[in-house]
Design a protein around this nucleic acid. Structure first.
Length: 907
RNA sequence: GGACGGCUAGCUCAGUUGGUUAGAGCGACUGGUUUACACCCAGUAGGUCACAGGUUCGAGUCCUGUGCCGUCCACCA
């Protein structure tokens, strides 16, 4: 073994070995319980980000742990075609080649896009493999695979048949750059500093008299078809029913009254442009107004805007409109105004509310989806996200599922040629085209990407094909065990998958009534959802490509190893809180691996183990008569750690799991047990028992760590002879009780009191080291101590003498009958210790130190005495608390007494 | 405008039903080539638990209010 662990070679070799041995393949084994996770599919052309590292490390930890526990595990990977994102990238590439998708036409464009996907796609799989992810790669699914596409279309047709899907002309969120409609969820509201303009409209019936409105969008005035006031607004008793003259594209428009108008905003009078605003659209419908659409799809103005504006971009038109109004004297005022404007998530430009004919989905199984989470069929971690989820479902609105893109699942609807598409008699909806195809033309649009990925847990397991479901084990692996994802897609994906599962899994397809409880628990797509935090940079900013503040995970792997990266990221990921990334933590992860490597190297240097190949063999190497307090204590601590870890896993407290293992490994095992082992190596029988204990501990540490750091643990598993040809992946660290039982069967019943003895001894050592360090004697191993203590202290000290001497770095501990004079002293749990100094002592500085110590003890004692003197404390507090306080008081009083004696002894 | 989260050592965070003297890692400082590991070891310093009230024998922990930071939701043009 080399002095330092070098991950690269190990990681590449072991990953290939795991693949060759098919360790990750998700098999249907009826005699085992299944454990399954479907990956949140990354964009097919995406590359690994720190977010992926976090998310997939967690999934890998869960799946590896489940494998260790004997489940038949499936972690199903795949990629998403990511409609808008990918199409945008391909179009950019085409532009560079001097062409465009329109030039190419649909068919050629899709060919290009597929080529592009095949060339740039799948990189992320290689990267996930670098990270060590134990996905069943043979089962990879892409959302545009034939089978998956069939599932998407089948879902569309079923929902249509069941009455959930309809086509209609509605106000949608239009992206003028991507040239498509978007769902509400794809619109990001951003606070903006806008201008609020006050504009006058002349009253037709009273020439020379004006009313004023407030607007942030003067470029839509040409589309105004009315002005509106609140019906109860007493400021304008006679205005309703009169007409005003529109100041741009002049015409006469009515003044109407509608309760949706806010009296207190602006002038209290609202211009109504039904084609360009959601509220205006609703008012327009109520009052049967005309809809004047002023915009082209790309956000420029059309002929209805008039010659002055036609062809102009919407923001240029805004300026032009203001200039013109100013020139006409109709602009009364302008002021800055803070408001929220919706932006396209992808293109990052303001959304245009636009009237357009689209396909909409009325969500199925909304009630059951609420119930599934509310009643605990699906558990959220952290639980608080349940509220967010439920709130969204309470206020759910129909989903615009059609997209004016080419890259995606084409909507399975055909229209009779030459007939109006808005009339459903001219529709044909089906997975296969109509027989007389020459009379029909297919809808040009595709489905929203999320309208395919919401089927992910079902369709990746073969739904709806009976044959595929059987082969892929839908009944065995579904519902999946856990979903690991970010809270940012709780609406986009999590909620929708739940509804899709409830609607499509199982029979009773046409039943609209509520599902019974037992059906809900069978249909849900997953039983538990773990929401990760968002990774931020050191300044707390979200990591993003544009900020350039996201480190490249592959560089980190090259620098620190995949295990180091995984360890680092998991150590800073508290449950459900955002994560501040720091490269130092990754460095610590690497350091941890190196420490693990070295302790194993040290073990190797002490001599090859006789037989480590199973737990019982190791136990048989233990000799009862050579068992020490430290042996008892370390094994007890190990059993405690096993229990702690089991408990924390159930709560998805990954960083606490890691912390518990870390603490046992580093503090208890390396800093203590290995150190006290050293003096024991001189006696051959003692040595054999001690090494067997080390082997038990290292074995369990490797097993506990394996989900977090799979490579190094597999490597050491084999190097230390635990493997016997078998991978570490199928061995469970087990429960604390299992360990104690196995030891007991071999005749080793661990003594609980050993824990206290060890902790006292350790405290003693720390205090003696400090005493030396303060006198600059840290490196002098020839110092001697005197101590005064009771017979129990003496027993314990004799018991642990050799470790104390070795670890303090001292030559002798001598019992004294009375406090020696003139020596620096320290009060320990095992008596008062005096450092024997051959050289002189600075009495004054010793006095100061001990005086300070005694003052602080007096303060503590006074506090406890006050508490115990308070009759309501003594009467009301539980007995054990009062007793605890009394013990504490006695302890501190005797410590104070000893300190005083040490002070007196100084003269 | 609503909802949720955070505020504990210089930094990042633990602190589970209120109960002994509030912890860890990193960083800082001091010392160190002892039979693994300087990617290491030993030691030291460092905290009015955001603020203000309240409940209680007892509050970092529970209640009320305030402030700051962050996230999500919401049709005030």
């Amino acid at each position: 073994m080399d002095k330092a662990y070098s991950p690269q070679e190990v990681e590449n070799r072991l990953y290939q070995k795991w693949l060759d041995e098919e360790c990750f393949s998700g098999k249907i084994s009826e005699n085992k319980d299944s454990y399954s996770i479907v990956i949140p599919p990354p964009n097919v052309t995406g590359v690994l980000t720190m977010g992926h590292v976090l998310n997939n490390t967690i999934q890998d930890i869960l799946t590896r742990r489940a494998r260790q526990e004997g489940h038949s595990v499936l972690w199903l990977p795949g990629t998403d075609h990511a409609g808008i994102a990918t199409q945008t990238k391909v179009e950019q590439a085409l532009r560079k080649e001097g062409t465009s998708r329109r030039d190419l036409g649909r068919e050629k464009f899709l060919e290009k896009a597929c080529e592009w996907r095949d060339e740039h796609g799948g990189i992320i799989f290689k990267q996930l493999q670098k990270l060590g992810c134990s996905c069943d790669w043979e089962r990879s699914v892409h959302t545009l695979d034939k089978d998956y596409s069939d599932a998407v279309l089948e879902a569309f047709v079923k929902l249509f048949e069941r009455g959930y899907i309809y086509r209609g002309k509605r106000m949608v969120n239009w992206c003028p750059v991507s040239l498509t409609a978007l769902s509400d969820e794809e619109v990001i509201m951003k606070p903006q500093t806008s201008k609020l303009y006050k504009i006058r409209y002349e009253i037709v019936e009273s020439p020379g008299q004006y009313v004023q409105i407030s607007t942030t969008r003067p470029e839509t005035i040409m589309g105004d078809v009315a002005l509106a006031i609140h019906p109860d607004d007493e400021r304008w008793p006679n205005l309703q029913g009169k007409f005003v003259r529109r100041p741009l594209q002049p015409t006469e428009i009515p003044i109407i009254a509608d309760a949706a108008v806010e009296k207190d905003f602006g002038t209290g009078m609202l211009k109504i442009t039904p084609a360009h605003d959601q509220l205006d659209f609703e008012i327009g419908q109520r009052h049967d107004l005309q809809f004047v659409d002023l915009f082209n799809p790309d956000g420029s103005l059309n002929e209805f805007a008039g010659a002055d504006f036609e062809g102009m971009d919407r923001f240029d038109a805004r300026k032009a409109a203001i200039e013109k109004l100013k020139a006409q004297g109709d602009l009364i005022d302008e002021e800055t105004h803070e408001n929220n404007v919706g932006f396209s998530e992808r293109a990052d430009v303001p959304i245009e509310p636009r009237l357009s004919e689209q396909w909409f989905l009325k969500y199925p199984r909304v009630e059951e989806a609420k119930q599934a989470v509310r009643d605990g069929h699906i558990k959220f971690f952290p639980k608080r996200w349940e509220k967010t989820y439920l709130h969204w479902l309470e206020n759910i609105r129909d989903w615009c599922i059609s997209r004016q893109l080419w890259w995606g699942h084409r909507i399975p609807v055909w229209y009779r040629k030459g007939e109006p598409r808005s009339d459903s008699v001219n529709w044909f909806v089906g997975i296969n085209p109509p027989d007389d195809i020459e009379n029909w033309e297919q809808d040009e649009d595709v489905l929203d990407t999320w309208a395919s990925s919401w089927l992910w847990p079902l369709a990746t397991l073969g739904w709806p094909s009976e044959k595929a479901m059987k082969e892929k084990g839908l009944d065995y692996f579904y519902p999946t065990s856990a979903l690991v994802t970010g809270p940012d897609i709780i609406f986009f994906w999590v909620a929708r998958m739940i509804m899709a599962g409830l609607e499509f899994k199982g029979d009773c397809p046409n039943e609209i009534s509520l599902l019974p409880e037992n059906e809900i628990s069978k249909r849900i797509p997953f039983k538990e959802v773990y929401f990760t935090g968002i990774i931020r940079d050191a300044d707390g900013r979200k990591m993003s490509k544009s900020l350039g503040n996201s480190p490249d995970p592959l560089e980190l792997i090259a620098k620190y190893g995949a295990d180091g990266l995984r360890h680092g990221i998991m150590s800073i990921a508290p449950k459900g809180q955002d994560i501040r990334f720091s490269e130092e933590r990754i460095e610590q992860g690497r350091n941890f691996c190196n420490k693990l490597w070295n302790v194993c190297r040290f073990r190797q240097m002490s001599g090859s183990p006789k037989d480590n190949s199973n737990f019982e063999f190791i136990c048989s190497r233990l000799d009862q008569s050579k068992f020490t307090t430290d042996d008892h204590a370390i094994l007890l601590r190990l059993s405690q750690t096993l229990d702690e870890v089991n408990k924390l896993y159930q709560e998805y407290e990954f960083n606490s799991v890691l912390h518990a293992i870390y603490h046992f490994f580093w503090t208890d095992f390396c800093d203590w047990y290995i150190e006290v082992s050293k003096p024991r190596m001189t006696d051959s029988e003692d040595k054999e028992t001690c090494l067997a204990v080390q082997d038990i501990c290292i074995r369990q540490i490797l097993l506990l760590l394996h989900p977090f750091t799979p490579f190094i643990t597999e490597e050491l598993w084999s190097l230390l002879g635990y493997a016997n040809g078998k991978t570490i992946q199928v061995f469970s660290p087990g429960k604390g009780a299992d360990l104690l039982k196995k030891l007991s069967e071999q005749g080793f019943d661990l003594k609980n009191e050993s824990l206290e003895e060890v902790s006292k001894t350790r405290e003693l050592i720390t205090l003696l080291r400090a005493l030396k360090a303060e006198r600059n004697l840290a490196n002098n191993r020839n110092v001697e101590f005197f101590y005064i203590g009771n017979s129990n202290d003496e027993t314990a000290i004799n018991h642990n003498q050799s470790s104390i001497l070795a670890m303090v770095g001292a030559a002798a501990l001598k019992k004294a009958e009375a406090a020696p004079t003139g020596l620096p002293a320290t009060v320990t749990p095992l008596g008062t210790f005096f450092l024997d100094l051959s050289a002189g002592v600075d009495i004054e500085s010793e006095r100061q130190r001990l005086t300070k110590e005694s003052e602080s003890l007096v303060k503590i004692i006074k506090g406890i005495e006050a508490k115990l003197g308070n009759s309501s404390f003594v009467d009301k507090a539980p007995v054990q608390i009062v007793e605890g306080a009394k013990t504490q008081l006695a302890d501190n009083q005797s410590k104070l007494q000893e300190t005083h004696e040490a002070l007196q002894a100084l003269q």
